[in-house]
């Protein structure tokens, strides 16, 4: 038991994550993906567009608190540091590099889950065709996201400060 606790609290410096954080990241992604696939479509069936908009609040909003809540306002105002000098994180999906590494959103998990579920549901013999058909559309959506995100990030050049973190990210120990 002590060994397990020690392993969970061990910082894996090649991945930049605590071993426990690897488990919480996978588990948090699993939960949001599963819940969206099971509930969202059915709520839209039952309630129409209102069901979809309700799902956005009660599924994504709730799982945002689980996966992405941040240190700072409402949790700890001082950006408390862990033993390794990182900002302590409370969400299940741990962000690597803490302040310098790009943000990994649970949108990846949801999109991947819906896609994999669709692959599993493919009728026999249609898997490759469906897979090949979907890839250009996925690439286009990812490209669109990159463009939109890059434009949104340009405010960083106006001198605005985010999260109270310094513009140059602290390097990992």
């Amino acid at each position: 038991m002590h060994e397990l606790a020690h392993w969970l609290g061990t910082y894996n410096s090649s991945l930049g994550l605590y071993n426990a954080a690897i488990l919480t990241t996978i588990f948090g992604s699993f939960c949001v993906s599963f819940t969206v696939i099971l509930c969202w479509g059915r709520l839209v069936q039952d309630l129409g567009p209102i069901g979809g908009m309700l799902s956005a609040a009660i599924i994504i909003g709730t799982f945002w608190v689980m996966n992405h809540k941040l240190p700072g306002f409402g949790i700890h105002p001082e950006l408390m540091k862990s033993a390794a000098g990182d900002t302590i994180q409370f969400g299940l999906i741990q962000q690597g590099g803490h302040g310098g590494a790009p943000w990994i959103d649970m949108g990846w998990a949801v999109a991947m889950g819906i896609w994999v579920c669709g692959l599993c549901e493919s009728p026999a013999g249609t898997l490759n065709r469906r897979l090949a058909e979907s890839l250009p559309r996925i690439a286009l959506v990812i490209l669109g996201g990159l463009i939109g995100g890059a434009f949104a990030g340009l405010v960083g050049y106006t001198g605005a400060e985010l999260f109270g973190w310094p513009e140059t990210a602290p390097q990992h120990p």
Binding site: P102, G107, A111, R130, S134, I142, L143
Partner: peptide, 20 residues
């Protein structure tokens, strides 16, 4: 196959943070 806007949000998170 369903292509979700989650791909866009995830990609935007990376692009936004890289630029920001």
């Amino acid at each position: 196959l369903w292509v979700d806007q989650g791909w866009a949000v995830g990609a935007a998170g990376i692009a936004w943070a890289m630029v920001r």
